[in-house]
Amino acid sequence: MPSGRVLIDEERCKGCGLCIAACPQKVLAFSGKINRSGYNYVHMEHPEKCVGCAFCAMTCPDVAIEVYREKVAA
């Protein structure tokens, strides 16, 4: 499995939780912290499990997630 990372724009996140449900690897969780708009934003609870599938970003209604994947050696 390739390893992945997600970058979550904490200020864009509205804490709807759709990404948490969409993640097949259970990487994401509510951070328990509140952003400037008053939302409990999402963070990577288990970054080591991320495979960079981008399901979270695809589901995010606020386009708050960027997804990165480890470069695979040619």
Binding site: G4, R5, L7, G52, A54, A57, M58, I65, E66, V67, Y68, R69, E70, K71
Partner: peptide, 9 residues
Amino acid sequence: TENMVKVFG
């Protein structure tokens, strides 16, 4: 995200 490639933006 060093040495990683963006797959979704």
